[in-house]
Design a protein around this nucleic acid. Structure first.
Lengths: 195, 195
DNA sequence: GTCTATAGCATGATAGAC
DNA sequence: GTCTATCATGCTATAGAC
């Protein structure tokens, strides 16, 4: 079934709306009826595309949004030749996007990940796979300038600082933490390049 | 009404159970009936002590658990004379506590903070106040060895690394991120002391 | 594939007996 | 202060017409 024209199918509209709502208000607080209303899909269509119900939809959304955000961050990092400048501009871009969305669009899966970590093993494993993918991607990027195993430690610290900064920035409605995180990341990179 | 003996009142049992459940499964997924059952209190007692209902209870729990966790971290940091050793042992203690709770007890307010950041202004402000209090406390601690304004940047990075590490560690059921975060924090501290 | 209706069960909140 | 019953509403999930 080839896509004719740029029309967006019902399934994708459902996934997009679910991703947006899970990101902004979390998994438990988002109802399937709200997703149906937001996406313009009939309630029954959700169960047509995701027979396993909410958990099935959540699993798909986590993996799809996770891959998309990895590409977004990889693009933000890859544009520059100097790694320190690239790191700073990536955190700046994240800060700008967060403020422009009225502090709603931070990490697409962090809220859900914390909610399900101790309550839903299937969704927990989906978030684990996404974070591992992000760390792998960042490890390969840092590997251009830093030897093992420091590349992986830097990559893990990058994700941790970004996630922690998103948390503080959303709670305070202030982009400041993201800029501090960027500076700290530059300091860590310098220490590992000279050391 | 003086406390006679070490009996724990109904109000505190409700707060304790709510704090535990909010921490492990989040705010939206935790029902008042579950809190009543867990604490052994009658359902109506919750509304007796918290007339504003769930939001009222959540606000109290966030501030109380936030202050308790600040004291816990401050104690973990303050025990040692050497700041680098103190930072490492604090992250080690956090890793141990997390693993021993089967990756359930990480930050007491992070899940709730992300859930309410864009949906409940009163609770968002409660989490903002708690994080600001933590950063202030850590800033004063770093101020013993590092001049302004680096003390505040280090304090913010400490909280961000701790929160990001908790997220990755819970998702992967692995304490590794907390140890990497501790090492990165030591690197940041060294850079600011020599620089 | 789309859409509606509804079952079965939870929720937050309230009223009122004791 | 404690406890129970209940209301109105929401949820996930299912069944079945079209």
């Amino acid at each position: 079934m080839p896509e004719t024209g740029q029309q967006v199918g019902t399934r994708q509209r459902v996934e997009d709306s679910a991703a947006l709502l899970f990101r902004r208000q979390g998994y438990a607080a988002t109802g399937l009826k709200q997703i149906a209303a937001e996406s313009g899909a009939a309630f029954g269509s959700i169960y047509h595309f995701f027979p396993g119900g909410k958990a099935d939809l959540g699993d798909h959304v986590v993996r799809r949004a996770g891959a998309a955000y990895r590409d977004l961050v990889a693009t933000a990092l890859g544009g520059d030749a100097d790694p320190e400048t690239a790191v700073l501009s990536m955190f700046d871009a994240a800060a700008r996007a967060l403020a422009e969305s009225d502090y709603a669009d931070a990490c697409p899966i962090a809220t859900l990940a914390l909610e399900v970590a101790s309550t839903d093993e299937r969704l927990r494993m989906a978030t684990e796979a996404v974070f591992a993918d992000w760390v792998d991607t960042a490890t390969a990027w840092f590997g251009q300038w830093v030897p093992r195993p420091a590349d992986r430690d830097l990559a893990t610290s990058l994700i941790m600082l970004l996630e922690g900064a998103f948390l503080l920035a959303r709670a305070a409605r202030d982009p400041g933490p993201l800029h501090i995180a960027g500076q700290s990341m530059v300091t860590l990179l310098r220490a590992h390049r000279s050391g």
